[in-house]
Amino acid sequence: MTRWLVTLPPALFLVVFFLIPALIMAVASFREPGEFGGLAPLSRESLGLDAYRFIGDDIIYAWILAKSFLVAALTTVICLLLAYPLALLIARSPKRQRDLFVLLVILPFASNFLIRIYAWMMILGPLDLLYSPTAVIIGMVYVHLPFMILPLYTNLEKHDPTLLEAAQDLGAGAWTRFWRVTWPLSLPGVLSGSALVFIPVLGMFAVPELLGGTGDLLIGNLIKEQFLDNRDWPLGATLSLALTAAVLGVSALTAMYSRRTLR
């Protein structure tokens, strides 16, 4: 009984906010687009695999999905490289300063997302970087950096400083102490930070649209276009299912990896 009480709310949450929308998407992907957008009335003839066939026939969709993965991976790696030293610095500063630093990390959220991206347009414009893949990466990194810093900090802050003393006492120099003690112990933080960056970047359409211009489509833009511009809901639904499947695949792989290497 108590077990039910504990597991029911999260299960209910998942059903309402993930499973039902995903099912609606799945059903939509088999239907026909309506004449003026939306979906055609449900009938025997209006159900089919048209959207799937369409995606399968054109290599461009697979290419865009692959490119989106590449952008997400690159963003994640850059975020990790920038966030790690920062998180380490925060975790090792005096306790009173730590809260201030954390506040500074999340402070950008206090202003509107679009305004911050427009600010970047004003910075990148004069630098001749606007509407380029570089601009997209810069924007993606900027938006997602806090999501990497926070889990890393939470992990690093819990490390027992005696472990580093023990390593030093047993003959490890500064660099060895990092690679043999701090880094392996921080892997859970690295993994959750990476997931928090990688997955949203995959679906993000605002940043590439505003900073990347029209020439460079990512899967997020493509999906958004099907719903808002092309009015081809079934195609949009199919693409977004493909994205969901890819993300779930990646999460499954990470989960398997982390279960094997981290205890």
Partner: peptide, 12 residues
């Protein structure tokens, strides 16, 4: 070398 009070064994 030191044996620490908390042992400080590497958990990983």
């Amino acid at each position: 070398h030191t044996v620490f009070q908390s042992y400080a064994l590497f958990p990983h």
